[in-house]
């Protein structure tokens, strides 16, 4: 059946779930071609990989429209650097050559806020060990956009590309830390319901964490993806579907911080459906599992790493969640997670 795309684009089409994939597949990938031997746009991976001698040149780009611009744990500047660095890392490309940064500003935007965003962006670059090497600036009339929009792109090199479509039955699924922190911090702010508690975005650059894992086990890592928009559920769905495998998740093993879990209950939002900005999902061969966990947990960004499931050869693309009481399907988020009436 043809993927459903509504006559007029709704917010759901940008939320990272099924609706967005339908939009990209039926409109933007229509007639798209890729260079020979490359991982191109049609792969819908975290980035593209183009053969270059005996290496791979990996490219990725992302635009950032977060509201509010400043949130506990980060801001749009830090997000713009980490998002692109992490997309490169998920392809196995941790040797980052350079980043670009484009910014579109609404007329009337405060200079002090721009300075704050730029300082944060620079700090994130230093933390990640990367450089913004070129950029672009535009200003649009008031009302023509909301505040500020950032776009970053990144270029990196690697010897081996890690895909998101190469999970194999028997692989263990590892998450590098707690789940749902970024999305729930933002959801609580947007809901404006005065939730108090330690809700903070996890936005962080994963370059050194992923480099350490890949150096330690190499091909013991079979697949990677960062669970950003659409959350862990959406990322796992893509991985399972593209790999033609089924996943069995151990619900109680998924690390979720208590304030995140409590807020999720209160707002009626599934923590597995909201964004993370400093986490990775890694498919690991069983023989490499212990090393991967040890390496992750020795790194400040991987302390809470956990094994959350196993890859099986059941129905392709199906994710079964064992709640501890029974099993059920984990569904792919449709669009923006929305609160319920009661």
């Amino acid at each position: 059946m043809k993927p459903f795309v509504p006559e007029r684009i709704s917010l759901a089409s940008g939320a990272g779930g099924r609706a967005m994939r339908n939009l990209v597949e039926s409109i933007f990938l229509n007639g798209v071609t890729s260079p020979p031997g490359a991982v191109g746009a049609d792969a819908m991976d975290d980035g593209a990989a183009i053969p270059l001698g005996n290496q791979w040149l990996v490219m990725t780009t992302d635009s950032y429209v977060v509201k509010p611009l400043f949130f506990p744990g980060g801001d749009i500047g830090r997000l713009a650097i980490c998002g692109t660095v992490n997309d490169l890392a998920m392809m196995g490309a941790t040797n980052v050559l350079g980043l670009t940064c484009g910014i579109i500003i609404e007329e009337g935007f405060a200079r002090s806020d721009l300075e704050r965003i730029q300082a944060s962006l620079q700090a994130a670059c230093a933390e990640a060990g990367v450089h913004v090497v070129t950029g672009d600036t535009k200003v649009m009339a008031r009302g023509e956009l909301d505040g500020v929009v950032l776009n970053t792109a990144g270029v990196a090199l690697c010897e081996r590309v890690v895909r998101d479509c190469t999970l194999q039955p028997g692989d263990r699924l590892v998450v590098t830390g707690t789940v749902g922190d970024h999305g729930m911090a933002i959801a609580a702010l947007r809901a404006d319901v005065g939730i108090e508690g330690d809700l903070r975005s996890d936005v962080a650059p994963l370059r050194s964490l992923i480099a350490a894992v890949l150096n330690a086990v190499g091909e013991g890592v079979t697949a990677m993806k960062d669970p950003t928009r659409g959350g862990v559920a959406s990322a796992l769905f893509e991985m399972a579907q593209k790999s033609g495998v089924s996943l069995l998740l151990d619900g109680p093993a998924v690390p979720i911080r208590h304030p995140v879990r409590a807020t999720a209950e209160l707002l009626g939002i599934e923590p597995l459906h909201v964004a993370n900005e400093g986490k990775a999902l890694i498919g690991v061969r069983p023989e490499a599992l212990e090393t991967v966990l040890a390496v992750l947990r020795a790194h400040p960004l991987g302390r809470d790493a956990a094994v959350i499931g196993v890859v099986t050869s059941g129905r392709p693309g199906e994710i079964v969640l064992d709640t501890g009481m029974g099993k059920r399907l984990l569904h792919e988020p449709e669009g923006e997670p929305l609160p319920r009436i009661c």
Partner: peptide, 16 residues
């Protein structure tokens, strides 16, 4: 109540 159905489904209780 939809919340009952939600809980039954979400916690996998139908199997019990």
């Amino acid at each position: 109540c939809g919340t009952h159905e939600q809980a039954i489904a979400r916690f996998g209780l139908r199997g019990l």
